Amino acid sequence: MKHNHYGHRERTRQLFLQAGPAGLPDHMLLEILLYSAIPQRDTNDLAHQLLNTFGSVKGVLEADVQLLQQVPGVGYNTAVMLKTVLALFSRYMRDGQDSSRVLNTSEKIGQYMLPVFLGKTDEEVYLLCFDDRFSLLKCECIGGGSHNAVQVNRQKIAERAVVAKSNLVAIAHNHPGGVAMPSDEDIHATLEIYKTLRDLNIQLFDHIIVAGDDFVSLRDSNLFVGL
């Protein structure tokens, strides 16, 4: 037996297919998405409530699982689904970049890292390992922290670069909710990492700091003379 919301849901899906995403308001797109996690309840009101609570689609997708579950009607499965959508979008944006993955400028590295940090609420550090022609060999998270601090293990960075057989690396970390400007601690940590890698004949090409849709290169900013 079909649920009594079936007709409305099918009409909404058809409207989406005919009008495209640009033809539907945010709450309706979110309503359709919620169908997958909530099969037998009206999701229109919930979509409105989520947008009112978090301010925008961006706010909904970037909200913590715990915060999402504080909205009446949002269970664990729904919250995880919303976070999965953001993760998939991040992969989509990353995969849509230059397929050759030649990141031979600070600008290219920064653009590559923007979707990696999309929606992150805690600071994380990534290591990018390149071959001699700046083709990306590996990009991996090597450390995490709190909303405004992260621990960087210089030895781990060196070990991962050696394992990747890379003599050319870059690091990147984020400032969630902040600005893409390096702190004194960021600059000091970069210098220490540079020295550790230099002793192993590994070049630290740059340190990228990301905040939202903005990023700063320590190399291009002349904030780290050794780079």
Rank of each mutant, 00 (worst) to 15 (best):
G7V: 01
I208E: 02
E185C: 08
G212L: 10
L197P: 05
K195E: 15
D45P: 02
K156H: 13
N153H: 15
F134V: 06
S166Y: 07
D132Q: 10
H48C: 02
D131L: 05
P176C: 00
Q151D: 14
E31T: 10
T78S: 10
R154Q: 14
E185D: 13
M81S: 06
L34D: 02
L61F: 14
L128F: 07
L17W: 13
S217L: 04
T43K: 06
S183D: 04
T53V: 06
E159H: 12
V152D: 08
G96D: 05
P182F: 09
F117S: 01
N222I: 03
A19N: 15
N44R: 14
S36P: 05
L88V: 12
G212F: 02
A63L: 07
L50I: 00
N77V: 11
G96P: 04
A189H: 02
A37H: 00
Y112T: 05
A164F: 04
L82N: 01
S36T: 09
N44P: 01
F215C: 00
D64P: 14
K120D: 13
V116K: 10
S100M: 10
Q155N: 14
G144V: 08
A149C: 07
L168Q: 13
R11C: 03
D95W: 06
S56R: 03
Y92G: 01
P21N: 13
V150Q: 07
D42Q: 09
A172Q: 00
L17K: 15
E107I: 12
E62M: 13
S90Q: 01
H173T: 05
N104A: 12
I208R: 05
A161K: 02
L136E: 06
L218N: 10
D42N: 13
A172G: 05
R94I: 09
I202H: 02
L88H: 14
H175D: 02
Q203E: 07
A189L: 08
L24P: 11
S221F: 11
K120H: 14
F215D: 01
F130Q: 02
R219G: 00
H3A: 00
Y76S: 13
Y194K: 14
L61C: 06
